[in-house]
Design a protein around this nucleic acid. Sequence first.
DNA 1: GATCTGTGATAACCTATGTGAAAGGCGCAA
DNA 2: TTGCGCCTTTCACATAGGTTATCACAGATC
Lengths: 251, 251
Amino acid sequence: MPNFERVRPLVHNLQRYVRLSEDDKRAISQLHETPMHKTKAREDIAREGQNPSVVRLMVSGWACRYKDLPDGRRQIVGLFIPGDFCDLNVYILKRMDHSIGAITPVNYVGIPPSQLDNLIHAHPRVGQALLWHELVQDSITREWLLNLGQRSAFERIAHLFMEMFMRMRAIEHTEGRTCPFPLTQSDLAEATGLTPVHINRTLQEMRREGLIELSSKRLCILDWDRLKEIAMFNPDYLHLDHEGSYLDANA
Amino acid sequence: MPNFERVRPLVHNLQRYVRLSEDDKRAISQLHETPMHKTKAREDIAREGQNPSVVRLMVSGWACRYKDLPDGRRQIVGLFIPGDFCDLNVYILKRMDHSIGAITPVNYVGIPPSQLDNLIHAHPRVGQALLWHELVQDSITREWLLNLGQRSAFERIAHLFMEMFMRMRAIEHTEGRTCPFPLTQSDLAEATGLTPVHINRTLQEMRREGLIELSSKRLCILDWDRLKEIAMFNPDYLHLDHEGSYLDANA
DNA sequence: GATCTGTGATAACCTATGTGAAAGGCGCAA
DNA sequence: TTGCGCCTTTCACATAGGTTATCACAGATC
């Protein structure tokens, strides 16, 4: 199976939710045989208002969901890393209510809904895993709302760092205490509802306090425990724990 | 059918997405024959961390989804009105990652997942409508994120007013330019990430400018067009338009 | 190697929104 | 009818974070 490496993040992602059989995995890896799309960094992958015809599965790179206002203000409302589906909802909702943009160069496969239908029919547990994936994304969105509404700039940025580190770890993209972190300070600003200037100030402070290192697109979390306490980070909302899941209970 | 009146908001809700047959509607109204639950205003309906066993359908009153921080800060991350489902996701995710609280006295029916399963099997279009409903809720959550991240206090409150008015209108709970609006100023603060004091200041300003009236739990929108422009309100994210939907296209 | 362009660092200054406190009004319970 | 509690309204004051501007640097581009 030549594409197996490419499937790994997705399989990792889904296996947190259901135990997949070898047969399930084989079926998933066939998704990757649809043509691979490449976008350059900073390029739009989909625009609000469009009617996309495929479901996109991230293979490599980082992307974001964002919404913008007529006067140009932009808010990043979600981040995608390898193994994430961008718009599973295309199935049902015809019109995109947000845009998707590449942060880094991105590789993704675009899966026609019909193909996904077939997969789900033949492998219902994969279908459930996909639904779970979508629900986890929603849970993350709600946590971001709490983040923007109630946490201070410092707490907010700290929280985002922890979240992305954990998500990257779940797909085995971390090394020790470090992981890739390709967001610029402007991106961070758009994700947290702050100004680039204030992001910079706050990052300096976090460095001064020995909490993190961040340079050349890599994040290192120096003091996990203190950062966790500051951010009031409780990972439950990521639903990373395989244990206690509905699907598992009925396995 | 004695319960038909009670079903109306839900049927209105779902009919925006799919054309329901008389038979579908009959099936839906049977949901309302499960026992009715009543909660007092300000009471919790479900708490974060719990493992709820029913899917709740709002019959009357307003409720909210909220998340809180260990130090007591609270963020309302969504509002529920009659016809809304509170936790369709219980199907899959076992543990609540947020709480649900009543704003006013609330009546709801708690539907066992098995019963919903049966309904969906027998009436697949109802199942699709439910999924759509869930996706619309998510779209609303993303718009709230844009709201908190990028809009000023004034714009933010204006936007919330417009949204709730339109949602109330969709279930025929408006009269002319007015509708019930049971949130206190503290609730408004928790929904917008602002302080009660600042909510008050801003409301005074909106009244002074002749944009709205708000008293005794009723909202009147005096100048729809100006409010819409100020809030940069674009109703697309509510997906209220029946036209152009995937389901419709395949009807 | 010269030049661009995007990113990061900092500074001085400004303002929208938060804080804490007090007083008044209104609806509900007894 | 009175009283009690929750809301709302207001005030004076404090501050987190926004704004505008400048400079330095590194990696692309020619």
